[in-house]
Design a protein around this nucleic acid. Structure first.
Lengths: 234, 234
DNA sequence: AATACATGTTTCATTGAGTGAAACAAGGAG
DNA sequence: CTCCTTGTTTCACTCAATGAAACATGTATT
């Protein structure tokens, strides 16, 4: 119920409070925020006032807090700036067109995965979260497993995933869907996030999914990204 | 050149750093951030590290900072939560359709105005900033004048604008455009922001603009907003 | 090459801003 | 009316934030 970490540093604590909000917890009141963050009520209250003052949160009539308009402002600057997003959208769209399935790019953001780019091919499922949306990593899915493998301390399971280079999930989040996820690296070898290709489980056996990965690898490589880490064979 | 206020409070300072970014200043380096905020280099550096750690900023290859993906996350929660935005979009769209001009809703956010909603009617000018975008109030425009009038201490000029109930600008920001802006209030009488209707100056004489305001007033009233403050005639 | 300059990073003694327990206030529920 | 929950204010103590200075690194200028 309670998080086990009350972080030190005023700014850390403020940003922690902000980060407690998610699509699943859009509105939180003082008590919940204090509980989830592990902060004292008085401390949380003081920080919240500042966050409201700057428009990063807003206080609703019933006393609950929710994200404010300042985030919209910064988000649109982020979109305009992020060369990652403008670089990644074209190859995502091409992969999506070639495999005729939904292709997404996820990054880890705290303990959630955020969808930075997505192309739906011809399908128009409303099941999928939108760009900018995020879900807890604990809810699983191929992309979540992959993000864990590359951002958590190494375990045998994670090491296996990394050695394999992809993760396939069937019915993990929704029983009718199947996904393959694989890592994406910057050209300097730094880990960026997970590409996931998702479609109806009945259409996609494992062999097909792996062939999709090959298609995606080729497109991403052409766009200047790395898809496999050098294992240092020199 | 330098801002005259180095605010106290660690969280304040951190959020100040975030708020320095705008569509006009998408990327800032440590020196600029320290200068603009009035903070010591060392202090700014420490705060920036935290902001990067949580994904609110990211450090680009050349050492410059820019807003990070955490903003995208919170922005999409904001959009999903803000009943203001979901309430205001339909009437904006209807006004836009009826007057066949671009209709926007601006709020004041610090010393800038942020576009919370917009409908372009049939036009597709790329001149306009997007939803979420913001520009300094000092750059003027009808919406800026109106936001000033309702959020700054009263002066004769501001009082006149409030008494009139609208503000018309011609060629203030761009010589080919003309706008009319008027205030929007919550049903409890609290000030929300400015509605602005903008189009080509040649098409829009003042009489036309004022008739647009009447259209907009009717639509906004139907959507449950107040458009004029009671002058207390009881 | 050598020098000067601009920008980023680390260190450390000082102190004042942040902390949290407790008391207080304001509702709501039973 | 009383009990319980949630939000707000107060205040003495102390730890985390501060900023000057030294250091590192990189980029122009001569």
């Amino acid at each position: 119920m309670t998080d086990t970490k009350p972080p030190s540093g005023v700014l850390d604590r403020g940003l922690l409070l902000l980060s407690l909000f998610s699509m699943g917890r859009k509105r939180l009141q003082l008590r919940e925020l204090a509980e989830l963050s592990g902060l004292d009520k008085a401390t949380a209250l003081r920080l919240l006032k500042v966050l409201v003052q700057w428009g990063f949160l807003e206080k609703n009539g019933d006393g609950a807090y929710s994200p404010g308009p300042a985030n919209l402002r910064l988000s649109s600057i982020f979109k305009a700036t992020s060369n990652l997003m403008s670089r990644i959208e074209p190859p995502i769209a091409r992969i999506s067109a070639r495999v005729e399935q939904t292709t997404s790019f996820f990054i880890r953001s705290g303990n959630e995965r955020t969808c930075l780019a997505r192309d739906h091919a011809y399908q128009d499922f409303r099941y999928f979260i939108d760009v900018g949306g995020s879900v807890s990593l604990d809810e699983g899915g191929a992309a979540a497993q992959l993000l864990f493998a590359y951002t958590e301390p190494e375990t045998p399971t994670y090491a296996a995933t990394k050695a394999r280079g992809y993760y396939i999930s069937r019915g993990e989040r929704n029983k009718h869907f199947a996904s393959i996820a694989f890592p994406l690296f910057e050209s300097d070898g730094s880990f960026l996030g997970a590409i996931a290709i998702t479609g109806m489980a009945v259409d996609l056996d494992n062999e097909t999914l792996i062939s999709f990965r090959d298609v995606a690898h080729a497109e991403m490589a052409m766009a200047g990204f790395e898809v496999m880490l050098d294992t240092g064979d020199r």
